Computed example of a mutant assay.
Amino acid sequence: MTVSLKTLPDSVLNRLHELHGELSPEALTADGEISESEWAPRKRLLDAELLQIQASHGLNQDDVDEFAVMREVGHRREASRRSRAPRMR
């Protein structure tokens, strides 16, 4: 079976999306309000979680790229929105 973002459960995909948000420089550093000694341990934990998800689901680095994850989240949201939209006759 080929593993890709398309085959991941929503919960895993959403966690990858959240991790990328938490790993943004603004989020990590509280917009520059905290020192590297304060944010670096948090970054190590988040990076480790990202690697664990990648390994446990057989994903490669390109699969967990922030933009690939954002694109798949967007596709799923659009598909969900379309499936709920009333059908025109």
Rank of each mutant, 00 (worst) to 15 (best):
D62M: 02
R87Q: 14
P41M: 08
L59Q: 00
A79Y: 12
S11A: 14
Q61M: 02
F67K: 06
K6E: 12
V69E: 00
S56N: 15
M88N: 15
R77G: 15
L5F: 02
S24K: 00
R82K: 10
I53F: 03
E72T: 09
G32T: 03
S11H: 14
Q54D: 13
S56Q: 12
F67V: 10
H20V: 02
F67A: 06
V64A: 09
I53Y: 01
D65P: 00
H57K: 09
R44S: 11
D31Q: 15
M1V: 08
S4N: 09
L28Y: 12
D47T: 05
G74T: 12
E18Q: 03
K43C: 05
D65L: 00
A68N: 13
E26R: 11
R84S: 14
V64W: 00
A48N: 01
K43L: 05
E49S: 01
L45A: 07
S11P: 13
G21Q: 03
K6A: 13
W39S: 04
P9D: 13
L51P: 13
R42I: 11
L16I: 00
R87G: 14
V3H: 11
Q54T: 03
P41I: 04
Q54G: 03
P41H: 10
N14H: 07
D10H: 08
R81E: 02
K6I: 04
P25D: 07
V73E: 11
S35Q: 14
E18C: 10
L8C: 09
A30G: 06
L5Y: 04
A55M: 11
H75M: 14
H17V: 00
E18M: 07
M1R: 15
R84W: 04
S37K: 11
L46I: 07
S4M: 09
S24D: 04
D10T: 11
H75T: 15
D47L: 05
N60S: 14
L13T: 05
A85F: 05
E36Y: 12
E36R: 07
G32H: 06
D62H: 09
L45F: 10
P86M: 14
R87I: 09
E33M: 08
V73H: 03
E33H: 05
P86C: 07
N60C: 12
N60F: 06
S35K: 13
S56E: 15
E22S: 10
E72V: 10
S4E: 02
E72P: 01
G58Q: 11
V69C: 01
T7P: 02
V69L: 00
L16G: 01
A68D: 09
S11W: 04
M1L: 12
A48R: 00
W39N: 11
S37F: 15
E33T: 05
A40G: 07
L13R: 04
A68L: 01
D47Q: 13
H17D: 09
G32P: 04
V12G: 13
R15K: 04
S11K: 06
T29V: 02
E49G: 00
P25A: 10
P25R: 10
R44K: 07
H75Y: 11
G58E: 14
H57P: 06
A79V: 08
V12R: 00
E22N: 15
D47W: 10
N14T: 13
W39A: 05
A85V: 04
